[in-house]
Simulated scan of single mutants.
Amino acid sequence: MKVFLVFALAVASVSAGLLPLDTPMHPRDIEAAPSINGRITNGKNAAENQFPYQVGLSFTGSSGSWWCGGSIIASSWVLTAAHCTKDSSSVKIYYGSTVRTSPKLTHTVSSSNFQQHANFDSATLNNDISLIKTPSVAFSASINRIALPAIASSYSTYSGQTAVASGWGRTSDTTTSVAKNLQYADLTVIANSVCQQSYGSKVVRSGVICVSSVNEVSTCKGDSGGPLALDSKLIGVTSFVSSKGCERNAPAGFTRVTSYLDWIKSNSGVSA
Rank of each mutant, 00 (worst) to 15 (best):
A138D: 13
S166F: 10
T219R: 08
S198W: 10
I209N: 12
S201D: 02
V217P: 03
I190T: 09
R205K: 14
S224C: 12
S242Y: 11
A191R: 11
C220V: 09
S193L: 02
L125N: 04
D186S: 15
G226F: 10
N113A: 12
Q197K: 15
V208D: 00
S239A: 11
K233W: 05
I235T: 14
T219K: 10
N215L: 06
K221E: 14
S140T: 13
K221N: 14
S218F: 07
V217A: 05
A138T: 15
D186I: 05
G225Q: 09
K233G: 07
A179V: 10
S243L: 09
V214F: 10
D223G: 07
A229Q: 14
N144D: 01
S177P: 00
I209Y: 06
T124R: 01
I209D: 08
A141Q: 10
K180E: 14
S201E: 02
Q161I: 05
G226M: 14
R170Q: 13
S206Q: 11
P227M: 11
Q161V: 06
C246R: 07
G167C: 06
E247Q: 15
V241P: 03
V217H: 06
W168Q: 02
L131A: 00
A150Y: 01
T175V: 03
D231E: 14
G207R: 03
K133M: 03
Q196V: 04
S142P: 01
N119F: 06
S193R: 09
Y158C: 04
S140N: 04
I190Q: 07
N192K: 02
F114V: 09
N127D: 12
E216N: 15
Q183S: 14
Q116T: 15
T238D: 00
G160V: 05
A147V: 03
G236V: 05
N126E: 08
A250E: 15
F254V: 02
L148R: 05
G236K: 08
S242T: 12
D223T: 13
V178P: 08
G169K: 10
L125I: 12
R145M: 05
S212G: 15
V164Q: 12
Q116A: 10
G207N: 10
G245E: 09
G222V: 06
T175H: 09
S232R: 12
T124S: 12
L125K: 00
N144Q: 02
N113M: 08
T176S: 13
A165Q: 04
F120T: 04
G245K: 13
A179Y: 08
D223P: 13
S156R: 02
I190A: 01
R205G: 07
N119E: 08
V204T: 07
I143Y: 03
